[in-house]
Design a protein around this nucleic acid. Structure first.
Length: 563
RNA sequence: GUCUCCGUAGCUCAGCUGGAUAGAGCGUCCGCCUCCUAAGCGGAAGGCCAGCGGUUCGAAUCCGCUCGGGGACGCCA
């Protein structure tokens, strides 16, 4: 039982189709087919556990009132061993179905036996998927956008993995191009300034204090020997020293944020190994480029773009865009990914169509490239937007953020909303250890369960033998069934989060799970009730704890035993 | 100007591949611990789903326009 909800829906659809065929055979309904309809889980449980609008949808083709069709379907419905106990007609012609007790027992049993694998499916058929995210500029520290992108990309990768894809997490290091030139120049100026030189830092250079510190570190460990070398040599020495340090810092900070990449891919390799030149040749041979003002232009407009783009500047240096085409050529053609997902800030949205188009232009399939555009975050404190770090006066960095708020809260918060929504990050709320902060609400449910189980063990109740000994059919109160039904939705929820690239589905699922558990906790006592019921409820507690853990594992958030 | 995201309770947001009475948290008010963690649960109040039109049995959901807000439109990355 990989996905109980999907299985139940499939069962219902075949039962409905069978009922229709029987009704047709009896001459009760015309033989035009039911057409398209849906089976859904109604918001209101009095409308059953599942409901279908089949009769409403078929009303036109069958030229009969919906209620008459629904009645005919109901008359000929055979639920047999379907896991459903009854069906009824309601409203304008809905058919509502009610699950039997077996369904609930099966779900609890499945969780207890599948354990940390519950929720995982083979939906993705081990398709090779790359998730590229963060890819922060290595010339400096990461900012708030990287914090959201990091939490988002990392959880999306985990979710895809759970949904059965073969996932690679990748960080693209932009260690070439203009920004490295600027980095080099900034370092050089700071270096010379440290040695008393009278040079000013140009405005378009990196103004941060980190550059000065790097220059100082260089002098401390390598001396000032390059002072009199020519500028190009001096810059190279400084960059060769500073860039690896910055990259190491990125790794360190991301690790602190619980993100580990499988691959750190350097842009420079694409320039050095001829991939950039190769894709330029491919574009040339396909007639997708032209020359103008001494530069090489890509005919974006011929491939779905809104305006043409420069590939090679008139000074002979390829643009970032040229390198990006080469990079994605590498992802698809060289490394053979079936699908590539990039998590980008919304400020890159203009880049999406032309990169996809460029994939088509070099004979690859741009539709296999998906971009998750993430809107920027507004940091709030005391109801006011925070733009700058108090300490440095510069943009807020990931490290600044994690100094202030717990990692659990940050990761949870950034995955609370769909990537495309503009979101506010409330610093005051994130540090609050109260019910206002949803991450604690979820963790509290987990801690409560641990506490119950501890109390039961202290009473010598065989908590660990629940799977073998418990009579799950005793779990029949509304609170128990609501909890179990929600548990059974996890596999489908993970698949849906994976296909829609929306980790927020999982955080919200987890909050709802905690809510249902807290209700169960309030209304159904575990300790102290009759032994068989106590054992069954303990089993439900263990199953719930497992599901909370599985969800928090996807988000890489701690599941504390006590709070 | 073109493209893009957003607009739902006082606040932050779900719901959006069309379905039954539009949901949650926070805030406000009122209840619930001799009993497994009250970081919890229950209840009340709070809505022109930005506006107008269209599509149809049915629209918060789909389409068009308008208004309001964020972002992008470099031989930057």
């Amino acid at each position: 039982m990989h996905d109980p909800i999907a299985k139940a829906k499939a069962t219902l659809i075949s039962a409905i189709e069978a009922a229709y065929n029987t009704a047709v055979a009896k001459g009760v309904l015309p033989n035009f087919g039911l057409g398209e309809y849906t089976v859904e889980i109604p918001a209101d449980t009095s409308h059953g556990d599942f409901a279908t609008n089949a009769a409403l949808c078929a009303a036109r083709t069958l030229k009969l009132p919906p209620q008459k069709i629904a009645a005919a379907l109901l008359d000929n419905l055979d639920l047999g061993n379907s896991g459903f106990s009854k069906a009824e007609m309601a409203g304008p012609g809905f058919l509502n179905f009610f699950l039997s007790n077996d369904y609930y027992s099966d779900v609890v049993r499945a969780v207890l036996s599948q354990k940390e694998r519950f929720g995982h499916t083979d939906f993705g058929r081990a398709e090779k998927v790359m998730v590229e995210f963060v890819s922060a500029n290595p010339t400096g520290p990461m900012h708030l956008g990287n914090a959201r992108g990091g939490a988002l990309g990392d959880c999306l990768a985990s979710i895809l993995d759970a949904a059965g894809f073969a996932v690679t997490r990748e960080f693209y290091i932009n260690d070439a191009g203009n920004q490295i030139e600027r980095f080099a120049l900034s370092l050089e100026v700071r270096f010379l300034q440290e040695l008393g030189g009278d040079v000013a830092l140009p405005e378009d250079c990196y103004q941060g204090e980190d550059i000065t510190l790097l220059a100082r570190e260089y002098i401390a460990s390598c001396g000032d020997g390059i002072k009199d070398a020519d500028s190009a040599e001096r810059k190279k020495a400084l960059v060769d020293f500073a860039l690896p340090k910055n990259i190491a810092n990125l790794k360190r900070d991301l690790l602190k944020y619980r993100i580990e990449f499988d691959i750190w891919f350097k842009e420079s390799t694409l320039h050095n190994d001829g991939t950039v030149a190769k894709v330029l040749d491919m574009l040339k041979s396909r007639g997708a480029v032209y020359e103008n003002d001494g530069a090489l232009w890509y005919k974006a407009t011929a491939y779905g773009g809104d305006k043409d783009e420069v590939l090679v500047r008139s000074n002979g240096i390829p643009t970032y865009f040229a390198a990006d085409i080469a990079y994605h050529y590498n992802k698809f053609a060289v490394r053979g990914f079936d699908r590539v997902i990039n998590v980008w800030g919304a400020d890159h949205h203009g880049h999406v169509a032309r990169l996809k188009g460029a994939m088509d232009a070099i004979g690859l399939d741009g539709s296999k490239l998906d971009i998750v555009l993430m809107q920027l975050v507004r940091l709030m404190r005391d109801g006011e937007p925070v733009r700058m770090s108090k300490r440095t006066g510069k943009a807020i960095t990931l490290t600044d953020l994690l100094d202030e708020i717990p990692i659990d809260a940050a990761r949870f918060y950034f995955n609370l909303r769909e990537p495309k929504t503009h979101c506010e990050f409330d610093l005051d709320l994130a540090v609050k250890q109260s019910s206002e902060n949803p991450v604690y609400y979820v963790q509290y449910a987990h801690a409560r369960i641990c506490s119950i189980l501890k109390a039961l063990r202290a009473d010598s109740i065989d908590v660990d033998g629940c799977l073998d000994n418990a009579d799950f059919s005793l779990l029949c109160s509304p609170d128990e069934q609501a909890l179990i039904k929600h548990i059974s939705a996890l596999p489908g929820e993970i698949i849906s989060a994976a296909t829609e690239y929306d980790p927020a589905k999982i955080t919200r699922y987890t909050i709802d799970l905690a809510t249902l558990f807290h209700k169960f906790y309030t209304n159904c006592r575990v300790k102290g009730c009759e032994l068989s019921l106590c054992t069954a409820r303990a089993a439900l507690c263990i199953a719930t704890r497992q599901v909370i853990r599985n969800c928090l594992e996807l988000l890489k958030i701690d599941a504390p035993e006590t709070m």
